[in-house]
Write a protein that binds this DNA or RNA. Structure first.
Lengths: 356, 356
DNA sequence: CTGAAAGCGCTTACAG
DNA sequence: CTGAAAGCGCTTACAG
């Protein structure tokens, strides 16, 4: 400000400008600014003064090329606004910031081609790690894709982090952070069973999607554990989300002319649960007086809706934090590392004991 | 894969490796990969083949240093999960992606020092634009800070974008994208007035914060327009958010022993509205039968809660998109550019005409 | 403690 | 159409 540097006329001011104004070499400027090398108090003062006068900031690209500077973490999600993804993104960003990393976000829109393109871009950026978030359909194509990502990232000194996604083969050099999806489903179903419910409908999950499948597995296991015959299970998953929840709930109610045999509904996620409650009301059924409802995710809506929804909490932000923590861990070995985070049930007001 | 390159033994494969394998010069590799220069079909084929064999991706830092490559947009928000910020972030990311830009996110936690540090980092990254999101207390310090950001960013060929924030002095080289905050408040208050409400309590905004002040202004103007004396206005803003909404609503109700004179509540944001409805219920007051309630933001909770909340829609994602669109516009002039986005009222079920 | 110089991996005039 | 070379802005051995 105020004083005008010789070279700052146009464009950026570089380390050369600072050196000139301070009357020292470029090397010295670099060293005092990095502060990782002995420098005399005199040059230190001159350099700092000059840098401030010129409002100098180093060029991160040049720094990176020279093998130094701040690193970057990339997070690739289906979208940015959904509460689960937003929570993971926030965890990634916060943990990254704590380790003095910057974070790059991009949304894939569930498009594998886009995902691949983004992984390549992140390789170009020499991201220190790229974390992939979100459930998927786990098929051979998926596994192969992940193996390739992991390989090419590793070759560039970066690493792949799978967050809430199934791990590829054990020899694939990836970091995996998951949450205990099945246990949560088991717990919340058991909660219903413990309240005396026997006939529990499970709706609102996407068949084939690993997240949905794991929840179904937990539900079925809980039923079995409580001696409910498999034939009493009612499964109707047409997809996640509010729209699908609405549809699934209506299907079930229409099938029985609005007089269901089930006394409780386990919704694949909280938005499905919200839709289910609304449909139930529309059919003249009260929640929880007539029908109990539980969800999954502990989305903000669960606490906001009426009645408050009993659901399973997923540690979204913690998943993100753990993802970068693990990614930043010893870069030495290239073997796979995994971590499983716990889930727990959050009890609110949408479940009532069945009265015989 | 498969075949092993000569130099790829350790670390990254560079353009030099590709050139060697293809039997051409580094310059030629650069040109065919960039595709912005005439090259023979023969070399093109060889280069592409070699690049593929070696799984080559260019180093973005080297590219950037050489004055080419993909640009980056930075977005700085209070936090990542709040629905408004998440919506803006999503808009920024999507629009940036459409223009082949990458997006860097960081949260400031409402800390000016952190904000400043982030702006510097983004300067280092040579971000093409840095978008600052969120309401603020507009004082001299704020204006000066923004002027400095704008200045130093401009000096580096980047630009400052203020999103949903007051513009600094007109000569400051910034881009400003706002939404019509006051008009929205005016509209929703008028909606209440049109339904016969005269005594309308406004709660849940933060005094001093520009966002809150603008909403109060719209409320007051609507009252005046409808001939309601200023003395009938009841203003009780102790802050945004659910917690403050709960507190404000209780305050008001306690003051009158649960028998309010007001027949309607205008909440400063939707989470405040949610809290207000819950408190009202707790006091035995029905919404909208006894008291009408409106909010602001059109947060997801507005559609989810019961009753559905009549509120003002803010075009969050569109704000983000517009921010980058404007930032990417002609880089020529360094004067300020502004855009005001509209808001509109969303009518749901939380308002009822007053019956005399 | 400090400077000159090489080098990071690209791109782009400049010749040919 | 193609190559040799300079240059982008730093950092870091290497001498001193």
């Amino acid at each position: 400000m105020g004083e005008r540097g010789e070279t700052e006329a146009t464009g950026r001011v570089t380390i050369r400008d600072v050196a000139a104004r301070a009357g020292v070499s470029v090397a010295t400027v670099s060293r005092v600014l990095a502060g990782n090398y002995p420098t005399s108090a005199a040059s230190r003062a001159k350099v700092l003064r000059a840098a401030k006068d010129l409002d100098y900031v180093a060029n991160a690209h040049a720094r990176a090329l020279a093998g130094a500077g701040r690193k970057t973490i990339a997070v690739l999600l289906l979208d940015v606004v959904s509460s689960y993804y937003a929570a993971v993104a926030q965890g990634v960003e916060k943990e990254a910031a704590q380790h003095d990393r910057l974070t790059l976000v991009a949304s894939t829109g569930a498009d594998p081609a886009r995902e691949l393109a983004l992984v390549q871009m992140m390789r170009e950026q020499t991201a220190e790690a790229v974390v992939l978030v979100g459930g998927v359909v786990e098929d051979a194509a998926y596994r192969e894709r992940m193996a390739q990502y992991a390989q090419s990232l590793a070759a560039a000194g970066s690493r792949l982090v799978l967050c809430g996604r199934p791990a590829p083969a054990p020899d694939v050099p990836a970091v995996v952070v998951e949450y205990d999806n099945e246990a949560g489903a088991h717990a919340v179903t058991s909660h219903l069973l413990g309240a005396g419910h026997r006939k529990i409908a499970m709706i609102g999950y996407q068949p084939g999607n690993t997240t949905g499948e794991d929840r179904v597995r937990g539900y079925l296991r809980a039923l079995a554990d409580h001696g409910v015959p498999r034939s009493d299970a009612v499964l109707h998953g047409v997809g996640f989300g509010q729209h699908n929840g609405d549809r699934a709930m209506r299907d079930l109610l229409d099938r029985c002319d609005g007089k269901p045999e089930f006394t409780a509904v386990f919704a694949g996620d909280d938005r499905v649960a919200l839709a289910a409650v609304k449909v139930l009301h529309a059919y003249g059924l009260r929640v929880p007086e007539d029908i109990s409802v539980v969800g999954y995710n502990d989305d903000p809506v669960a606490a906001d809706m009426t009645p408050g929804l009993t659901t399973v909490h997923i540690p979204g932000e913690e998943l993100g934090r753990t993802a970068v923590r693990l990614a930043l861990g010893d870069t030495g070995r290239s073997q796979q590392r995994r971590q499983l985070l716990g889930t727990h049930i959050v009890i609110r007001d949408s479940v009532r004991p069945v009265t015989p």
